[in-house]
């Protein structure tokens, strides 16, 4: 398999007067794990479906490798899609599901069966070749769906919330496998998710969307450490968005310092809640004229100065931890 780059140019999708995808531009280099991230209704799934060819673009272009695929049918784009909750054909066995694309192309039975078994081998599902989807667990279904998509030798694999049907433990295991597979195959994965954890763990390129537009695109580190807007800072989590005289700033929760009232601080805050989270403690504070603030403290720090709910504290941070946001 060879990877291709993906480029979206002023891509727009409107349903009547509702604009789901609003003239977005994006370049995804070949062999990239790209996550489209955002809250529901932000346009990430519409974008994926536009790339797949299951929606028609209202305006703009989709370019895969050297080819403008905007007007091409799904099967001729060099993409393959893995659907949310997989859409495995319930009346076909795993092997027949995987062999489906070969069957509709008229590949002889023995040959397509052999290819399907190879592909099931890639995802360690050969022993389940004759099972129907209903007889497979969620994780197994996900592997069959993956094999079914990969057998078409796509240049870009499109995944629509591939982990949402799995339980939390399996989710972490499967996402590591997805990442490994992407590197092995050397093709780009375009993965839609609403979980910033998932995106940060997997992506080479995080594309955070909001209201049909791309809010910020970059490596997970860039997006997390240098959020462009308050929305990005809030969505990625771990940040306090604070209004100041010179515009909004973001301060990471683990950089916030809490001191006794009267000691130097930039804001004052009243402790509203303390949550023990194993590796650290999370303190929530209410501060006048601000949204709630969060501070992360390690156990030793906390034990040195135990806090109680209702207590008023000085909240401080150092100059180098201030990150200015676009208004």
């Amino acid at each position: 398999m060879s990877g291709s780059s993906l480029e979206l140019a002023a891509l727009t999708k409107a349903y009547g007067s509702t604009v789901a995808v609003d003239a977005i531009d994006l370049k995804v280099p070949a062999n990239t794990y790209c996550c489209l991230l955002g809250p529901s209704g932000c346009g990430k799934t519409s974008t994926l479906r536009l790339v797949a060819g299951h929606e028609t673009a209202t305006a703009g272009d989709i370019i895969i490798g050297p080819t403008n695929v905007t007007e091409l049918p799904p099967a001729q784009r060099g993409t393959a899609m893995m659907f949310q909750s997989y859409a495995l054909f319930p009346h076909l066995t795993s092997a027949d599901n995987v062999a489906f694309s070969l069957k509709v192309r008229g590949v002889p039975k023995a040959e397509r069966r052999a290819s399907a078994m190879d592909m099931l081998g890639l995802v360690h599902m050969e022993p389940y070749a004759e099972r129907l989807p209903a007889q497979l667990s969620g994780g197994q279904q996900q592997r069959v769906a993956l094999a079914r998509a990969l057998i078409t030798r796509p240049q870009i694999l499109l995944l629509d919330e591939p982990l949402s049907a799995l339980d939390p433990f399996l989710r972490i295991k499967v996402r590591a496998e997805l990442k490994r597979l992407q590197k092995e195959l050397g093709i780009s994965f375009l993965h839609v998710t609403h979980s910033q954890d998932e995106a940060m763990a997997l992506a080479d390129l995080v594309v955070l969307m909001n209201g049909g537009r791309i809010e910020q695109a970059g490596t997970p580190r860039e997006v997390f450490n240098a959020p462009r807007t308050a929305f990005v800072a809030q969505f990625m989590g771990g940040h306090n968005v604070i209004a100041t005289g010179s515009g909004p700033i973001a301060v990471r929760a683990d950089r916030v310092k809490l001191r006794r009232a009267g000691e130097p601080g930039r804001l004052s805050g009243t402790v509203r809640g303390i949550e023990y989270q194993g590796t650290h403690l999370q303190v929530t504070l209410a501060s006048p004229d601000q949204s709630d603030l969060t501070a992360l403290m390690n156990e030793a720090e906390f034990d040195a100065v135990p806090l109680k709910p209702g207590e008023t504290l000085a909240v401080d941070w150092s100059e180098q931890d201030i990150h200015r946001l676009n208004a």
Binding site: H54, A75, M81, A87, L88, F89, F100, S101, V104, R148
Partner: peptide, 26 residues
Amino acid sequence: DRRYEEAARDLGATPWQSFAHVVLPI
């Protein structure tokens, strides 16, 4: 579930193949 048909289309099935091999059996 329309996604069955979309999946068939994604895998290269013509509308008739999608009806005969996916919709009708289901």
